[in-house]
Simulated assay, not measured.
Amino acid sequence: MQISTTRSTETVSDERLAEVLADPGFGVHFTDHMFRVEWTPDAGWHGARIEPYGPLTLDPATAVLHYAQETFEGMKAYRHADGSVWSFRPEENAARMARSSQRLALPVLEVDDFVQAVQALVEVDERWVPDPAGEKSLYLRPFMFASEAFLGVRPAQHVTFMVIASPAGSYFKGGVHPVSLWLTEEYTRAGRGGMGAAKTGGNYASSLVAQQEATAHGCDQVVFLDAQEGKYVEELGGMNMYFVHADGRIVTPETGTILEGITRASIKELAEKLGHPVEERKFSIQEWKDGVASGEITEIFACGTAAVVTPVGALRWDGGEVATPEGGGLWSRLRQALVDVQYGRAADDFGWMKRLV
Rank of each mutant, 00 (worst) to 15 (best):
M1N: 00
M1K: 00
Q2N: 14
S8I: 06
S13F: 15
L17G: 04
A18V: 10
L21F: 04
D23E: 15
P24Q: 03
G25Q: 08
V28C: 12
H29N: 08
H29I: 11
H29D: 11
F30A: 07
H33L: 11
H33V: 12
M34V: 02
F35Y: 12
F35H: 05
R36V: 13
R36G: 10
R36T: 10
V37T: 10
E38V: 08
A43E: 08
R49H: 09
Y53A: 14
L56S: 13
T57Q: 15
L58H: 06
L58N: 03
P60V: 05
A63V: 13
Q69S: 04
F72K: 13
F72E: 06
G74H: 12
M75V: 04
Y78K: 01
H80W: 06
D82N: 05
G83V: 09
S84L: 11
W86A: 04
W86F: 10
N93E: 02
A94G: 03
A95V: 13
A98E: 08
R103H: 09
R103T: 08
A105G: 14
V108A: 06
V111M: 03
D112C: 00
F114H: 00
V118T: 04
A120R: 00
L121R: 03
V129K: 10
P130A: 08
P130H: 10
P132K: 10
G134N: 04
S137V: 05
L138D: 03
R141C: 03
R141I: 02
R141T: 00
V159F: 07
T160E: 03
F161T: 04
V163I: 07
I164P: 02
A165Y: 01
A165W: 06
P167R: 03
G169T: 04
S170A: 07
G174H: 02
V176W: 11
L183M: 08
E185G: 13
R189I: 14
A190W: 03
A190K: 01
G194D: 13
G201P: 04
G202V: 00
V209L: 15
A210R: 00
Q212E: 14
E213S: 06
H217D: 03
H217S: 00
V223W: 15
D226V: 00
G230S: 01
Y232C: 07
E234G: 02
E235R: 05
G237W: 12
M239I: 10
N240T: 04
N240K: 09
I250N: 11
V251P: 07
T252F: 04
P253Q: 01
P253F: 01
E254Q: 12
T257M: 12
L259D: 06
L259H: 01
E260L: 13
G261F: 02
I267P: 14
E269G: 14
E272K: 13
L274N: 12
K282N: 13
Q286A: 11
Q286R: 14
A293T: 12
E296V: 11
G304Q: 05
A307M: 12
V309G: 10
T310H: 12
V312C: 07
G319P: 01
E321R: 02
V322E: 08
V322T: 09
G328F: 07
L330I: 03
L334S: 01
L334G: 03
L338E: 07
V339G: 13
D340W: 09
R345D: 13
A347R: 10
D348M: 00
M353T: 07
